[in-house]
C-alpha cells in the first residue's frame, strides 16, 4: 500500500475538520500550483491551545498530516506546540513516502503561522517564534 494504516485512518476519518469562526489564530500555507493548501485554526486560553481545526485541499498525506497535527497540539501549551516539527508528524503517522514528506512540512508551517497570527494579535512573544517570518515559509515542495 501507498500509505501506512495510521495515515489511512487519519485520511478516512480525519479529526477536527472544519473552521473556527473568529479563531484566535489562523495559518494558511501551500499553493494551488502544487496542489496543496492547508489552513489551521486555533483558539487559545491561558497560553493553552484549547481548540484546533483544519481545512485542507490536497492529497491523502496532506489531509492525514493536518488531522494528526490538530490532535497533537490540542491541549498543549503554545511553547510545547512550537516544538512540534514535521519529523514528529511523519513519525506519528508511522512514516510517509519520501515524495510526500513535504505534506508534513506544510502542517508544521501552517501551525506556526496560526500561532504567529495569535501572537501578533495579542502582542505576545514566544521563544519558538524567534526569527520566524510567516512570509518566508517555503511554499514550494
Amino acid at each position: 500500500m501507498l500509505y501506512t494504516d495510521i495515515v489511512m485512518d487519519h485520511f478516512s476519518n480525519p479529526r477536527n475538520v472544519g473552521e473556527i469562526k473568529d479563531a484566535d489564530g489562523m495559518g494558511e500555507v501551500g499553493n494551488i500550483q502544487c496542489g496543496d493548501i492547508m489552513r489551521i485554526y486555533i483558539n487559545v486560553v491561558d497560553d493553552v491551545i484549547t481548540e484546533c481545526k483544519f481545512k485542507t485541499f490536497g492529497c491523502g498525506s496532506a489531509i492525514a498530516s493536518s488531522s494528526i497535527t490538530t490532535e497533537l497540539v490540542k491541549g498543549k501549551t503554545i511553547d510545547e506546540a512550537l516544538e512540534l516539527t514535521n519529523k514528529d508528524v511523519v513519525q506519528q503517522l508511522g512514516g510517509l513516502p519520501s515524495v510526500k514528506v513535504h505534506c508534513s512540512v506544510l502542517a508544521e508551517d501552517a501551525l506556526k503561522v496560526a500561532i504567529y497570527d495569535y501572537a501578533e494579535k495579542n502582542n505576545k512573544n514566544y521563544k519558538g517564534l524567534e526569527g520566524f517570518d510567516p512570509n518566508q515559509v517555503n511554499h514550494e515542495h
Partner: peptide, 30 residues
C-alpha cells in the same frame, strides 16, 4: 473543482473502485 485527485482516488479505492487522475500528487511531480 475544490478537491485534489489523489484523495479522490484513495476514497474511491476504499469502496473498491479503481480509477486514475492527472493530479500532480499521483504522478509524483509538481
Amino acid at each position: 473543482k475544490y478537491i485534489e485527485g489523489e484523495a479522490l482516488l484513495l476514497m474511491l479505492d476504499a469502496v473498491g473502485v479503481a480509477a486514475s487522475s492527472g493530479s500532480a500528487c499521483t504522478a509524483g511531480s509538481l
